[in-house]
Design a protein around this nucleic acid. Structure first.
Length: 694
DNA sequence: CGGCAATGTGTTTTT
DNA sequence: CACATTGCCG
C-alpha cells in the first residue's frame, strides 16, 4: 500500500481516518501521496466501501492523476471512488436532482463564451450601451456573486451604483434565460447543489450518508460556494480531511478564500492538525530561493520548508535582448538538456500569461523540439468546432436558444437578422423556446433538419451522429466549397473532433451524447485525448500547480509581466503574484532558469521592463547569472510607496480603481480598507500611490 | 441578406 | 497586435 515509504507526519495523516483532519502541506511535501495512500488505507484497512469516499481536487488534471495513482495502488476497485473536481461533483448532484431545481432531464452546460453571448444580448435588450457597461465586467460581477452564493434577487441588497444596478437587472434576466433554455452555467454547478441542500434537508441527508469519508485537495483555493458545499456534505460524519498550503493560494481572483483553511479548526473543533514541512521534491538551492521569495509576503504565517536533498545547482538567470532572443535562449538550453540525455517530459517552460507562449512555440518549431502547450487557445473554442458542438447541444436540448441562434444560419441558409428577431419575439410572447416558436419559412426547414437528427441520435452511436451532423447540415460541404487552406484546416479540426468522439467511445465502451457534451465543456483540455509521450511542456504558472519537473524555465521574469502590472495597485494582488512565483519555483526538482528580456513587444507596443523584483528578493548566492552585478538591476520598490503618509482608523480615502473607501483596520504598514461591492475589503500598503486622502 | 472594409477595443490567471 | 463590432454597399 506504500505505507512504508511515508514519514511519521505523512503516516499520521493517512491513519487519522476518523474525524476532521487539517493537513498543512508545503510544496513538494508529498501531499498527493498522502491523499492517495489515505484512500487506499480507508478501503483496505478500514474496510470502507469505495463508493463512500468523495475526493475533490481543483483541476481536471489533478483529478485524473489522483485517480490513476489510486488505481495503481488498488486496481479496479478504485474506479468506483468519486474522484473529481468540485464542478464535476456538482454536475453529478444536479443530474440526480434536476427536477427539484427546475430543470428538465436534458439540461446542458453553457461555457463561458455562451454566458457572455447571453449577457451581451440582454444588455442590448435593456437598451444599455455595452461601451459604457462592459459585458465582460457584468459577467464577472454575476459570476463572483454566484460564487459568493448571492442570487439574483439578493443581489439587490448590494446595489449602490449605476453599474451594480445594471448588473442586478442583467443578472435577473440572465437567470431567467438560463432556466428557460434548460441550461446551467459553470457557477451553477456549485450553487445549485447548495440551493438544493438548503431547501431539501432530506436530500442532503442522503448525500451525507453516501459520502462518509471526504477528502479535499487545495483547500486554500476554495471559494464560498465550494466551502459551503463541503461543510454541508460533511456535516454529519465529519470525517473530512482537507489538504492545502496558504502560500499556494493563486485563485483569489476567482473568489478563492484562503481564510477557509485558516478557519478550519474553528469550523471543526478538535480537528487534528498535521504539518508537512519536509520537501522531497527540490534541491536545497531551489527551496532556499522559494523561501526567500515567499517570506516577503506580509499576510502569511511563517513556515520554512526544509529538505534533506543536496544543495544542487544554482538558479541560472539569463537576461536576453528581446522576447525572440529569450525564446531562442530557452530553446537552445533545452536542446542541450535533451542532447545530454534528459527526458523531454522532465522539461517545462512556465509563463505568467498565455500570450507569452507564442514566441516560445515558434522557437521550439524552429529548433525541432517536440512540445505540447497546456490549455492554450482552446480547441473547443474554434469557430467550426463551436458550431458543431452547438448542433449537438441543440439536438440534445432543443430549448437551448443560445446554440440555436448560433447555428440557425450556419452554413448560410438565408435566414437573416430580421427572421431571427421575429422568432425571438414570438418565443418571448408565448413564453416558449425559439425552437418551438418556429413554424414557417426557411427556418422550418432548419427545424426539420434538427428534428431528423434528433430522431437519428436515438439509434446512432456518438461517432456516427457526429458524422451525420457534418454531412447533413452542410458544415463540411460549405468548407469544401471554399477551397482555401484555411478551410482545409477547419475540416481537419472537424475530423479531429470526430476522432476525439471515437476515442472517448472506445475508452468508455459507449458514451452518451449527454456525457460527451458535459465532458467537453468541463474538461476543456483536449490534450488529454491526444497521445503525447515524451515532449517538452509549455504552460502558465497557474496550470502548473500540482505538477513537478526536473528542469523548469520561468520566462518573462520582468516587472509588469511578472509581477503583472495589473497587480501593482493592490497589496493583496501583489502578494498573490508572489505566491504565484513561489508555486513556479517549487515546480522544479533539479534545475531552474529565470529568463527575461530587456525589451518586449506585447500587444503591439514595445516596452523596456526592469527585472522582476522577485529575482532581487532571492539571495545572490543561489543565483548564477550572465549579468555581472545583479544588484545594479534591482528595482527600487520603495519608489512606489510614500512611507510618510499617515492615516487614521475610520478615515475616508479614494483608490484609483476601487473608488471611495473607509479604513477599517490598520497596522504598521498595512491598511485594511472597505470598498463598495463588488470590491469589498482590500489590504493596501500604507502610503501606496494608488490611494489618496479625501 | 451577405460580404467586406473601416473602425474601435481590450488585452492575467481557469472550472 | 489581434480580434470583434459596426457601417456601408451590392
Amino acid at each position: 500500500m506504500g505505507l512504508e515509504n511515508l514519514n511519521d507526519k505523512q503516516l499520521e495523516a493517512v491513519k487519522a481516518t476518523e474525524g476532521p483532519v487539517l493537513v498543512l502541506a508545503g510544496a513538494g511535501s508529498g501531499k498527493t501521496r498522502v491523499l492517495t495512500t489515505r484512500i487506499a488505507y480507508l478501503i483496505k484497512e478500514k474496510k470502507v466501501s469505495p463508493d463512500s469516499i468523495l475526493a475533490i481536487t481543483f483541476t481536471n488534471k489533478a483529478a485524473k492523476e489522483m485517480k490513476e495513482r489510486v488505481i495503481d495502488i488498488m486496481g479496479h476497485t478504485a474506479k468506483n471512488i468519486q474522484i473529481s473536481t468540485f464542478h464535476s461533483f456538482g454536475l453529478l448532484i444536479l443530474k440526480e436532482n434536476y427536477e427539484k431545481l427546475g430543470y428538465k432531464r436534458n439540461f446542458t452546460i453553457l461555457d463561458s463564451d455562451d454566458s457572455l453571448t447571453i449577457i451581451k444580448k440582454i444588455i442590448k435588450e435593456l437598451n444599455y450601451d455595452p461601451k459604457i457597461y462592459n459585458p465582460n465586467a457584468i459577467k464577472s460581477a454575476i459570476s463572483s456573486s454566484k460564487n459568493e452564493l448571492i442570487n439574483a434577487e439578493n443581489y439587490e441588497r448590494f446595489v449602490n451604483s449605476d453599474f451594480s444596478d445594471i448588473v442586478h437587472k442583467v443578472y435577473l434576466k440572465y437567470e431567467k434565460k438560463l432556466l428557460s433554455s434548460n441550461c446551467v452555467d459553470f457557477d451553477d454547478l456549485l450553487t445549485a447543489p447548495v440551493t438544493l441542500f438548503r431547501n431539501y434537508p432530506e436530500i442532503l441527508k442522503e448525500y451525507q450518508e453516501r459520502y462518509k469519508y471526504i477528502l479535499i485537495d487545495e483547500y486554500q483555493d476554495t471559494n464560498e460556494a465550494q466551502y459551503v458545499l463541503t461543510k454541508l456534505v460533511s456535516a454529519k460524519y465529519k470525517n473530512i480531511c482537507v489538504v492545502g498550503d496558504v502560500d499556494q493560494t493563486i485563485f483569489s481572483w476567482r473568489g478563492a478564500n484562503y481564510r477557509n483553511i485558516l478557519n478550519f479548526e474553528k469550523d471543526f473543533p478538535n480537528a487534528n492538525l498535521i504539518l508537512l514541512e519536509e520537501n522531497y521534491r527540490s534541491t536545497q538551492n531551489i527551496l532556499n530561493a522559494a523561501n526567500d521569495v515567499i517570506k516577503n509576503n506580509k499576510l502569511r504565517k511563517d513556515k520554512i520548508l526544509w529538505t534533506n536533498n543536496d544543495s544542487g545547482l544554482k538558479i541560472e538567470y539569463h537576461r536576453s535582448y528581446d522576447e525572440k532572443d529569450e525564446a531562442f535562449y530557452v530553446a537552445s538550453e533545452i536542446k542541450k538538456l535533451i542532447e545530454s540525455g534528459t527526458e523531454k517530459k522532465q522539461i517545462a517552460v512556465l509563463y505568467r500569461t498565455n500570450a507569452q507562449s507564442r514566441a516560445i512555440e515558434e522557437a521550439m518549431l524552429k529548433e525541432n523540439i517536440p512540445y505540447k502547450i497546456v490549455g492554450t487557445v482552446n480547441f473547443y473554442n474554434r469557430k467550426e468546432i463551436k458550431d458543431l458542438i452547438a448542433y449537438l447541444k441543440l439536438i440534445f436540448n432543443e430549448y437551448d436558444d443560445v446554440s440555436l441562434s448560433r447555428i440557425i444560419n450556419v452554413p448560410k441558409r438565408g435566414i437573416g437578422l430580421k427572421t431571427v428577431e421575429n422568432i425571438i419575439r414570438k418565443a418571448n410572447d408565448k413564453s416558449i423556446s425559439m425552437y418551438d416558436a418556429i413554424d414557417s419559412g426557411k427556418e422550418l426547414e432548419f427545424k426539420k433538419l434538427i428534428m431528423e437528427l434528433k430522431k437519428e441520435s436515438e439509434s446512432l452511436s456518438l461517432t456516427e451522429l457526429v458524422e451525420k451532423v457534418l454531412e447533413k447540415t452542410g458544415i463540411r460541404q460549405e468548407l469544401l466549397n471554399e477551397k482555401t487552406i484555411e478551410a482545409e484546416l477547419r475540416i481537419e479540426n472537424l475530423e479531429e473532433f470526430k476522432t476525439i468522439a471515437k476515442n472517448s467511445e472506445e475508452e468508455m465502451g459507449v458514451i452518451s451524447l449527454e456525457d460527451f457534451l458535459n465532458n467537453i465543456t468541463l474538461v476543456s483540455d483536449v490534450q488529454e485525448y491526444k497521445n503525447y509521450d515524451d515532449v517538452v511542456t509549455l504552460l502558465t504558472i497557474h496550470s502548473s500547480k500540482g505538477l513537478e519537473f526536473e528542469n523548469v524555465f520561468i520566462i518573462g521574469m520582468e516587472e509588469g509581466v511578472f509581477p503583472h502590472k495589473n497587480s501593482y495597485s493592490n497589496m493583496e494582488e501583489l502578494e498573490e503574484e508572489r505566491r504565484l512565483c513561489y508555486v513556479a519555483i517549487t515546480r522544479a526538482k533539479k534545475s531552474l532558469w529565470f529568463v527575461n528580456a530587456r525589451r518586449r513587444t506585447l500587444y503591439g507596443i514595445e516596452s523596456c521592463n526592469p527585472p522582476s523584483r522577485f529575482i532581487s528578493e532571492i539571495n545572490d548566492e543561489y543565483i548564477n547569472s550572465n549579468i555581472s552585478d545583479i544588484n545594479s538591476l534591482k528595482v527600487n520598490i520603495d519608489s512606489l510607496v510614500d512611507e510618510n503618509q499617515e492615516y487614521q482608523f475610520g478615515e475616508k480615502i479614494t483608490h484609483e480603481t476601487f473608488g471611495l473607501g473607509i479604513i477599517v483596520e490598520m497596522d504598521k504598514s498595512v491598511l485594511t480598507i472597505a470598498f463598495p461591492h463588488p470590491h469589498g475589503i482590500k489590504k493596501i500598503l500604507k502610503g501606496h500611490k494608488s490611494i489618496r486622502k479625501v
